[in-house]
Design a binder for these strands. Structure first.
Lengths: 220, 220
DNA sequence: CGGCTCCTGTCAGCGTCCCGTCAGCACGGC
DNA sequence: GCCGTGCTGACGGGACGCTGACAGGAGCCG
């Protein structure tokens, strides 16, 4: 599964690429319209995430050119919130779906998978780690076949650890991801983790004292 | 393959008819609403291209009457460019797609083909989920054999959840899909969902607190 | 034009479930 | 053994979502 991320804002581009890679895509990146157009025209992608405000060639023009040339891969367009005009133009230009900014990475992934499913491909939404089964679309989890009901906050914490598996996530980072503002006591996070652990059992969320939390792929 | 071209501007009508004939359709023409309605009601067409601004009866009324009478042929509506409102009304009235004027004939043909593919192709217009039967062409629903009368808004909500089954749809996304502008209170959506549920019974529309709504394939 | 029906957004009230806080405890490091 | 870090159970305020009622408005019909 190959994806093309077209976005000139370096920070957003990095996040999008990381999220897509975490979902199993091999990701190519383009920071301007001409590069994007060239890549999309000469190579095959299973998914394109396309920002509209691009240097050198506007995103809509890029999309129109692809469509005119018969390139029919699913394209997810990033638009400014509430700008329905952009949306209409996007749809007319051949976009398959649009996502208003700002958005959460999980939502981007969910829509991307929905697109690919519609396109006929199989959106690999279900990931397994030992006896832990995670459905990123339904936002549901099952342990040893038993479905586990997570709240929104718990889910987002787990998903973040999942996307950043392979490294230890500092509590401050997790706090910022979950809330944004930092008005909470640090203990709030600990409470969330505790509830997560009680629901999921051992061997899922680990602690590295003094550093942070991490996802244990190997279920005990 | 028979097509009906409804358009009062003689020049455009001629072009549309020519394009459709070039694509292999046998084309009938109507220049006013009443004639169009009569033809569409009494004869079978595989495709209708419908302009909105018509003498004697508005295009939207024609469309609504057809749908009310159970005529489910694919209808491609021609609207003024950028008229978001017209588009929404058109879809609510039962249009399958719309095309903003001015347009290139190739685009009309492309959309027409896409419509027919959707209507006749394997995209099985009738889908069943347990004792719930949904006809995507007729825009009709039945539960346990009993037909359920949905309003335009309710239908679009259900259809969107259906199209995006396999994932949880955030309320903001559903709101945007239903309305486009964001002027509505969030509660409007809850009201629509509540009415949907009352009509359909349990086991169709589910809620995931903090995330959104989803379609439950497993009817209880 | 006037009356009727149906649709739908808004409002207020209510129940349920979150989840942040607090206090106390367990454990590891030195 | 002491301290600091992190974990846990309990609890209460509050957010979230559901529902019934109501009114404005659009369409339809006479």
């Amino acid at each position: 599964m190959r994806a093309l991320a077209v976005e000139d804002d370096e920070r957003i581009a990095r996040d999008v690429a990381a999220a897509l890679e975490g979902a199993g895509f091999r990701v190519e990146r383009a920071a301007d319209g001409e590069t994007a157009w060239f890549l999309g025209d000469t190579e095959d992608f299973d998914l394109v995430v396309l920002d509209l405000g691009l240097p050198r060639m506007d995103g809509l023009s890029v999309l129109r050119r692809w469509r005119a040339a018969g390139r029919d891969m699913p394209v997810l367009v990033l638009t400014a919130r509430g700008s329905w005009q952009e949306r209409v133009e996007g749809i007319e230009a051949g976009a398959d779906d649009y996502l208003p900014k700002p958005f959460r990475m999980e939502e981007l992934l969910a829509r991307a998978r929905a697109l690919m499913r519609r396109a006929g491909g199989l959106g690999a939404a279900v990931q397994e780690f030992g006896d832990l089964v995670v459905d990123l679309n339904r936002m549901s989890v099952a342990r040893a076949g038993v479905p586990v009901n997570l709240t929104a906050l718990e889910w987002r914490a787990l998903a973040y650890l999942l996307l950043n598996r392979a490294r230890v996530v500092p509590p401050g980072e997790l706090l910022e991801h979950l809330y944004g503002d930092d008005d909470r006591e640090a203990n709030a996070l600990e409470a969330v983790i505790a509830r997560l652990r009680r629901k999921l059992g051992d061997g899922v969320v680990g602690t590295r004292r003094g550093f942070g939390y991490f996802f244990e792929g190997t279920s005990g």
